[in-house]
Nucleic acid binder design. Structure first.
Lengths: 338, 338
DNA sequence: GGAGAAAATGGGATCGCTCCCAACTGGAAA
DNA sequence: TTTCCAGTTGGGAGCGATCCCATTTTCTCC
């Protein structure tokens, strides 16, 4: 079949190019019967507007970009990004947007790709996740005037973001441990280049302080969100004789559990554990993990909705949202969960 | 800064639009000193060609699409797709291509998206994964003449694909069990709408037959690649008093391991296990899994390379590649692995 | 040194759409 | 009936590249 263009549809329905365009965009006034006729032809022929021409001529391409600026180690270890991608694609499908994925595997990718992303005009706007604190990408994006939504909060007041309330979530988890009577509560933190990891650790500290406990830095071990780093960190913590641990992600908690079991420690009998994320595997761990649930898919979908809103109504005022978390009680702390 | 176009670069370097275009595309003849001058201006200004204009005017947009036609249940349970995405993005970054991601969450997505993908001219070509046997998408793509590479083999001789040699891989795994002396070997299959799952089961059967064993259909349980389905399937198999199991994916093997441990069966003492994939968690399972490694990232990268080759040299003859697998011996079968 | 070929360069036409303004329509008001 | 205006409709002018052909420059060789 020959290539379908606006012009061809116009010809077939006996109107002009402009009118067909108006019908397709569903804008401005077109008389009902002309509209119906044109829609009929479009339906029949299966016409789809050419995206490239569209974005060349007008301002919108209906393409949004998802940037994952993570050096990607945990990309497959941890289901966070897959879930985020799911949420984002779900929403882009619903809103008839096309998704372009930019995944930085290392710094040179970042340097190579970011100018392209910014000046290419391939995308109408961007959803940006996995950035580190002080990531140079964010200021670059601000300066370039490209509309974008960050996943995770940011200090700059001009930035729109969707955040998960990590501080409060972590705080509630640690409060729960304190309430159950644990005294010597360690923490396994995530990669502290990461805003979320910082906030979770901050929540841990706040909970301790607000209940009159001292924060003992020797009880805080840094990991990097991988299962293995959780394993290593837990092995260090065991020597500190903690009676409970707050682990910043379920993925690391799984590693921590493995370390404990290899050392003959029973959970929660010898050491209690709370973690963060509520990934599917958390429920099936041994013992099932008490963990702070964050709605990752929801976050992705919200990011898309927020970006589309910005695209339609402008970037000011910046949209700043914090999604709540929920403590899912299972048996890894003893207590109510059984 | 005002918008950078070819014309502007031309002006700045004192040549014509066409010449700059030739420099950018790195085609045809341009005298060395002019080329150098133009490249200098491009470097200075940070010019990036407008992708939309490019694809409108020429034939290539340097955008390739990745279609994941999986109703996405296992998308985050199993690291297969994340790894594939990694491999693909790695390669698209290396080859200066942009990646557009199409994720079908359900059938209505597929129906809605596939015409758009095909006629939109958004992408130069497609990498298609997660399709079922008899998926209507494949014939549609063939008919539409859009260049594409399938991940996983396909009967139609016109289709180019990158396959993993699932039959041989499964066969070697089951042969290994047989060699170790196991007699009553069960199987937990993947979703049999899936070519790979069929092939793995086929490999299992071939191995049995080639060693003179009978295939007992009551020892074959179907799962769907999720951890939970592995758990359920194993619970059924226990009653069949098997002494070994071939599990079609590590994700299901993890569930099977859980079922066994809950039933007080020790691995490999009471029941031996081999599985497929060699995901990162396989190494950390208890006991570490003997499993067939498939190079998923490599598959993704190969798919990109193959597609680019097709884009450059035409789709005929179809490219058909099978990647080898490797049996990684750990301790879940007893035997050499310790 | 000049003819002819090859290499380098320039500019018009074009891709398929949106934007904008002009022109046409028909009904209400004068 | 004429005038006016809102509601429609049509078509020209780009958007920023590529492609192709025409033109100019440079090289080669007799």
């Amino acid at each position: 079949m020959s290539k379908l263009t606006l012009e061809k549809i116009a010809e077939l329905s006996g109107v002009s190019r402009s009118t067909v365009s108006r019908v397709v965009r569903n804008h401005e006034s077109v008389s009902p019967n002309v509209r119906k006729r044109v829609l009929g032809v479009i339906e029949e022929t299966g016409y789809q507007p050419n995206a490239a021409a569209r974005s060349l001529a007008g301002q919108r391409a209906n393409v949004i970009g998802l940037v994952i600026a993570e050096p990607a180690q945990s990309l497959f270890t941890d289901p966070y990004f897959p879930l985020l991608i799911q949420g984002v694609t779900q929403a882009t499908n619903d809103y008839d947007q096309t998704l372009t994925l930019f995944l930085f595997h290392n710094h040179s990718d970042e340097e190579k790709l970011s100018p392209r992303i910014i000046r290419n005009q391939l995308v109408d706007g961007l959803i940006v996740s996995g950035t580190h604190v002080d990531d140079p990408l964010v200021p670059q994006l601000i300066e370039s005037n490209i509309p974008f939504v960050l996943v995770g909060r940011h200090e700059d007041p001009r930035v729109s973001f969707i955040d998960v309330d990590n501080v409060t979530g972590a705080q509630s988890a640690v409060n729960y441990l304190i309430r159950l009577g644990y005294k010597r509560i360690g923490a396994i933190a995530g990669d502290l280049k990461n805003r979320g990891a910082i906030d979770r650790l901050d929540g841990y500290k706040r909970a301790l302080r607000s209940r009159g406990h001292r924060v003992d830095e020797t009880l805080i071990i840094n990991g990097d969100y991988t299962e293995f780093s959780g394993f290593q960190a837990m092995n260090q913590l065991i020597e500190q004789e903690v009676d409970a641990v707050f682990v910043s992600s379920d993925g690391m908690a799984l590693g921590a559990l493995r370390a404990l079991s290899e050392n003959g420690c029973s959970v929660p009998h010898d050491i209690a554990m709370v973690s963060f994320d509520d990934i599917p595997a958390a429920m099936h761990a041994k013992p099932p993990l008490t963990t702070v649930r964050q709605a990752v898919r929801r976050t992705g979908a919200m990011a898309v909705e927020t970006l589309l809103d910005i695209l339609e109504s402008g970037a000011t005022p910046p949209r700043r949202l914090a999604l709540p978390t929920e403590l899912i009680v299972r048996s890894s702390c003893g207590g109510t969960g059984g």
